[in-house]
């Protein structure tokens, strides 16, 4: 137990705000996200992540949003387990045909008002996989999309920027 506390104390707070209070672009972005989120959602934005056929690369970077460097929860952004609790669907991947109905149902289960972010090149345009017998391509081919975050995969900074784009 002691080791645990020692390491925790020694590690300190690595969350970016404290490391580079002025210059950090991430922090400025975050503050802006927070301001927009506050206006529409009273300080809380619930996101349901849906992998509709991704290679899992996008998920790795979305996961990173919760690491101590980005810690998006402090901006009121949190990931929820059910679409029924969500304001935003964050969709990755080309939509595989086998996931098409599941994505449609998830979209329907999300209460209004709702926003859809297509994250990653696959979600944006089909990426390497395109449209085929097995893939519907871009998310917009299946459900309406409000914001597109490009990148393969988008970096955590890009993802935060994308959230900002949605709020404008």
């Amino acid at each position: 137990m002691l080791r645990l506390f020692v390491k925790t104390l020694k590690t300190g707070v690595v969350t970016e705000r404290f490391r580079k209070p002025k210059q950090s672009e991430l922090e400025q972005l975050g503050i802006e996200v927070k301001r927009h989120i506050d206006k529409y959602f009273s300080g809380s934005l619930a996101i349901r992540e849906v992998d509709a056929g991704s290679c899992n690369g996008c998920e790795l970077e979305i996961h990173a949003l919760n690491n101590p460097f980005y810690d998006v929860e402090r901006f009121g952004i949190h990931f929820v387990a059910s679409p029924r609790h969500a304001d935003v669907l964050l969709v990755t991947g080309p939509v595989s045909r086998h996931m098409q109905t599941a994505l449609l149902r998830t979209y329907e289960a999300t209460p209004n008002p709702k926003w859809v972010i297509a994250a990653g090149d696959c979600a944006a345009c089909g990426g390497e996989f395109g449209v085929s017998y097995a893939s519907c391509g871009a998310v917009a081919n299946v459900i309406p999309v409000d914001v597109v975050i490009p990148g393969c995969p988008p970096s955590p900074e890009m993802l935060i920027k994308g959230l900002l784009g949605m709020m404008r």
Binding site: G53, G93, H98, A134
Partner: peptide, 11 residues
């Protein structure tokens, strides 16, 4: 499984 089958072998 098979939900994320996106035709990699064919493409």
């Amino acid at each position: 499984l098979g939900y994320v089958h996106k035709g990699i072998e064919k493409t």
